[in-house]
């Protein structure tokens, strides 16, 4: 009996760890969608870039791990700002189909640029944490996993507070609800767009940099990350922050428990099956956008 509980606890812990990461990535995606009305298919590439830049800062330039993580995020954000200024600002009034196609093109461009720059070799970011696993009553984890969970959870809270409590967050939510009215009351839409895109990219890059310690990153990683993020965002409701957080945790737990107690070949099917159900019976997602 106690062995069954230990295994259940292990599955739950695995689910929360992965779920936090899904939530963090999906928050960025849902923010870009909500504010800019862009379905960003290049979102996973920001995750991949975050991982690669952190890897290069730590292992080649010998930077301290804890300094490299924020610096990697800053570098990816700088790139995101350039992209937003040079591409997405010009497409503000373009139909969604156009911006979607542009993001798909951008994802291919970024993936292949990474392939050319860094080659196809998968890389793990060296971390200062001891690799010896920790055991709590037979449930295993490592300091790195705990660190990942703490950082992703903290960033989720920070993101939530930023959107709920600050002036900028208020302006974002206003833009969200009605762009024209927001502009009329003096909100600088251009700036809000730039913030949203940079912030969304920052969350994805942070996830890439933190998870890169135990999930090797390679140029093609972005594709599956984008896919998972869309699953979460559709589950939680396009443009809903709470939805992204809850959806991310739900998907992480569903995958962990589903794979744990059903044939593991079905692991990915669980998330996508949930998406089909949500689209059929509750197309606005579990949470409506706010």
């Amino acid at each position: 009996m106690s062995a069954t509980i230990t295994i259940l606890a292990q599955h739950l812990l695995n689910g929360v760890l992965i779920g936090c990461a899904y939530a963090l990535i999906a928050m960025g995606l849902t923010m870009i969608f909500g504010v800019m009305n862009i379905a960003n298919f290049a979102h996973g590439e920001f995750y991949m870039l975050g991982g690669f830049v952190a890897f290069y800062l730590v292992s080649l330039m010998g930077l301290d791990y804890f300094a490299a993580l924020p610096l990697a995020v800053a570098i990816v954000v700088a790139l995101a700002i350039v992209l937003q200024h040079s591409i997405f600002r010009r497409l503000r009034e373009a139909p969604m189909m156009t911006t979607t196609l542009v993001t798909i093109g951008l994802s291919i461009l970024l993936e292949n640029a990474a392939l050319l720059l860094w080659g196809p070799q998968p890389q793990s970011i060296p971390t200062p944490f001891p690799t010896k696993p920790l055991s709590f009553f037979g449930v295993y984890t490592t300091p790195l996993y705990l660190f990942c969970m703490a950082v992703t959870a903290a960033l989720i809270v920070v993101g939530h507070v930023l959107i709920r409590r600050t002036r900028m967050g208020k302006a974002m939510r206003a833009t969200f609800q009605n762009k024209e009215s927001a502009a009329l009351v003096g909100i600088r839409i251009d700036r809000i767009y730039a913030y949203a895109f940079a912030f969304g990219a920052a969350l994805a890059a942070a996830a890439g940099a933190v998870l890169g310690g135990f999930i090797p990153v390679e140029p093609a990683t972005g594709g599956i990350i984008t896919l998972k993020a869309f699953v979460v965002v559709i589950l939680g409701g396009m443009g809903s922050f709470v939805g992204a957080i809850v959806g991310g945790l739900l998907l992480g737990l569903a995958e962990a428990l589903g794979a744990g107690y059903m044939p593991t070949g079905w692991k990915d099917a669980i998330g996508f099956f949930a998406v089909i159900l949500v689209l059929l019976f509750r197309p606005e997602g579990l949470f409506k956008r706010v």
């Binding site: 695995n14 135990f214 428990l257 794979a259 593991t264």
Partner: peptide
């Protein structure tokens, strides 16, 4: 047990 070509983490399978 199985994992997918696209899987990046295998925690559920390993636990099982």
């Amino acid at each position: 047990e199985f994992f997918q070509q696209s899987d990046l983490q295998f925690l559920s399978q390993i636990t099982k």
